[in-house]
Design a protein around this nucleic acid. Structure first.
Lengths: 192, 192
DNA sequence: CATATTTCTTCACTTAAGTGAACAAGTGAT
DNA sequence: ATCACTTGTTCACTTAAGTGAAGAAATATG
């Protein structure tokens, strides 16, 4: 399991065995049951997450309705906005599947950063990379219709369509579950 | 004019007079006429922009249609994706108004960064800040209807509604100009 | 195993956005 | 002043998403 973590890190910086052991000794791994809520609206938290196995999701509740805006799967990291801004969270984070997560917080990472300056470098690269990805994603979302977005998802993250309930997918695509169901039927018809 | 730049910088790091002069001596300021295209699809470029006065816009051409995904006005910076990825650009950048821009490139900024390490710090903070803003914006876009997005814009960037042609605004909101026109009429009716 | 709950689809109807066309107002250039 | 072009609105019609309800299918849970 930890290999997933070190594979990920090795894409950015190389670690010695000592460094790996130092990280493991912090004991940051956590096993979480499907449906568990990791963060609630209004709550303050310092924790950020790295998905080793499973899937977590971020959603707002607006007018009593869940609006899912992101899914994070293996090798993806999530730093909630409230950690940076130190304000109460505007959204929820919960587990879509039974998952294994690395959960850390500012204190922990300050400790790691000061011991291993490499980590600061990795974080900078990561945040720049994420920013670029985010911008492309946003543009893609803006420039396409719900149907195109679904087809895109089918191309780029086909696993999500299998592992995530459709009402969550629908809201992620910006539509209602009924519309997603219709849209899927429409696409199937075209293909036949 | 340069004051806008230094005001902006002073929000992140403080500069001595010498440092200010060093920046000015690079002569990065450029005056650009309305309608000028700064970057074309397929083009490679190293330049990134900081708007001192005016407004620039980023747009894709998809199926022959312009899809505007962002506007940048005073005190906003734009680093095109192609600068980071070193690939040909997927989009266009052009001037909405007569503008005064700071135009720089990797070489320039490497030079500045090595002379003044302060700048590297500012860039890291900026990119983290931008990432956070971007995520909130994306969530906001995803969780609202075109009408809500228009009302949001009216709240948060009312200037854009005045200075940008409506067909560009419409595409920014994810709809056609006719729909924006209708939507505005609808809102006006509700208010009366 | 039976029951409850969640998940997904279907249907009829409403609402809002897309389309194509026509027209008026504003802007620029010659 | 005229003509071309851009910009914004309106209209009639089409298409797709929202809504509320009903029911089938799949998953938990006792």
């Amino acid at each position: 399991m930890q290999n997933i973590l070190f594979d990920f890190i090795s894409k950015y910086v190389s670690l010695t065995e000592d460094e790996k052991n130092a990280i493991l000794s912090l004991d940051l791994f956590r096993s979480v049951k499907k449906g568990t809520t990791l963060l609630k609206e209004g709550q303050k938290s310092q924790d950020f997450y790295f998905v080793l196995k499973g899937c977590i999701r971020k959603y707002y509740i607006i007018d009593g309705e869940e609006k899912t805006t992101a899914f994070y799967t293996e090798m993806e990291a999530l730093t909630p906005h409230c950690v940076i801004s130190k304000t109460p969270s505007e959204y929820f984070i919960s587990c879509v599947e039974d998952s294994i997560l690395l959960v850390s917080n500012s204190d922990m990472s300050d400790e790691v950063n000061s011991k291993f300056p490499k980590f600061e470098i990795m974080c900078r690269i990561l945040s720049e990379e994420l920013l670029a990805k985010q911008q492309i994603n946003f543009d893609e979302f803006k420039t396409s219709s719900p149907e195109q977005r679904y087809l895109n998802l089918l191309q780029n993250r086909p696993d999500l369509i299998q592992r995530v309930p459709q009402h969550q997918l629908a809201s992620y695509l910006g539509i209602k579950p009924q519309s997603l169901s219709r849209l899927r039927a429409r696409i199937l018809e075209k293909k036949i």
